[in-house]
Design a protein around this nucleic acid. Structure first.
Lengths: 226, 226
DNA sequence: GATCCATTTATTGTCAACAAAATACCCGAG
DNA sequence: CTCGGGTATTTTGTTGACAATAAATGGATC
């Protein structure tokens, strides 16, 4: 059962965190219709804060709400997942460009260190899928915040990533190409370190486009039925 | 005083609409600290639905909330406004490309008709600033929905445009270059009509970039003090 | 036997009172 | 006169009960 990760400041925040993680991890399955009272007993909440959290989640597109009819978890089709990647492509391209212009040298060093640890994890090849997925998330997370573009980071971290991660958990790993992805990550960081924003944008766009094509291929193969 | 535009389905929706328009039109000034009870009396609501609406608005970045300390309307700096345009550039570029691939012939015809009416309004030159601003919004709105990318449209229409419009109202018009903007719009539609997605993306990006530079110039001139 | 309508039931939407927390104010000491 | 601490007040956060609406069920008619 999903709990509030850290001591949330308010009950509504707690509810929001719980529900979000529950949705992302698949504990609450897509398309599942959920009653308010059921959720209350499940997460030890009362309906006031819960409703506030539901509103926030609806506004973020993680669930849909019909008046007087109830709440159900959003179910994203394969086509919509691919559309998400198209958005990621342009937005993270921008993030990479701005990160190249604005990240501090310390942040870049940390980013490189992150990749080093990812490399070790892949070499050890144990639970590589999970770590790869998490590592990938970590990498993109850092670049989003490194862009110093508050709204861009908010949209990426607050909207898109949660929807993508929702599928990551279900697919175990969407990438399945750890070495290749790592190499692409390395190149992007290199461009950022050289403060070459244009190249960083290009490489990031190509990186995400490759991931999208990979998913597309899996869908065609029937590995991925959504 | 802002009212619910149409009969909203629920009190919370009503509250959301009221507050959103109030913020966008400047009725609630940026940085203004607002109390819950005050809002309730002002919009004839009770605190339950209001709090739900506040949560949604916070999640969209239109206001910030500190636990136990209250709610205040977000105040976006000039720098942040420009960052918003950077995001628009890439996202609307994508929207234009996908619109060129996916819009129906009817939609394209409507889009052209829209521009015709805009042209007339500009020629009449009465209240041109207002109409230009609204017309511009209308144009971009149609392309966003025409992209057939649900999440992209949601992010543009639900997040970015409201923040941009917040400033539109305060600046009367951010463009101030109606003829030029119209010509750029024409070119974009032309590319869409020819189903040339790549060109449509390029032209849209350039169009928004020009708007951004125009604002930047105004800020430097001191016309625009945020 | 199937369909339409009314009633019932369960669920959501709303409200007003209660509890907790942060700000503001006042008083005293340095 | 200024600064620190403590109390008072205001405002937010939470709760549980009440009202309204939609789905489900059962009965009657075609």
């Amino acid at each position: 059962m999903a709990e509030a990760t850290l001591q949330s400041q308010t009950r509504a925040d707690e509810a929001f965190d719980c529900l979000q993680t529950a949705i992302v991890t698949g504990e609450l399955a897509p398309g599942e219709k959920i009653g308010e009272v059921e959720l209350c007993s499940r997460f030890n909440l009362t309906r006031g804060p819960l409703r506030e959290a539901l509103g926030r989640l609806e506004s973020r597109g993680l669930l849909v709400r019909r008046p007087h009819a109830g709440v159900k978890v959003v179910s994203v089709s394969a086509a919509e997942l691919l559309e998400l990647y198209r958005i990621r492509e342009v937005m993270e391209g921008l993030a990479a460009r701005q990160a190249a212009e604005r990240m501090t040298d310390e942040e870049i060093a940390e980013l490189q260190a992150t990749l080093d640890s990812h490399e070790k994890m892949i070499e050890q090849a144990q639970g590589q899928a999970y770590y790869q997925a998490e590592g990938d998330y970590d990498f993109h997370h850092r670049i989003a915040t490194g862009s110093r573009n508050a709204k861009l980071a908010q949209m990426l971290l607050g909207d898109l990533y949660y929807m993508v991660r929702m599928y990551r958990y279900r697919l175990s790993t969407s990438a399945g190409r750890p070495h290749l992805a790592l190499r692409e990550h390395r190149r992007i960081v290199e461009a950022i370190a050289q403060r070459d924003g244009e190249l960083a944008e290009f490489l990031m766009k190509r990186h995400i486009n490759a991931a999208r094509i990979n998913i597309e291929k899996k869908i065609e193969e029937g590995v991925l039925t959504i």
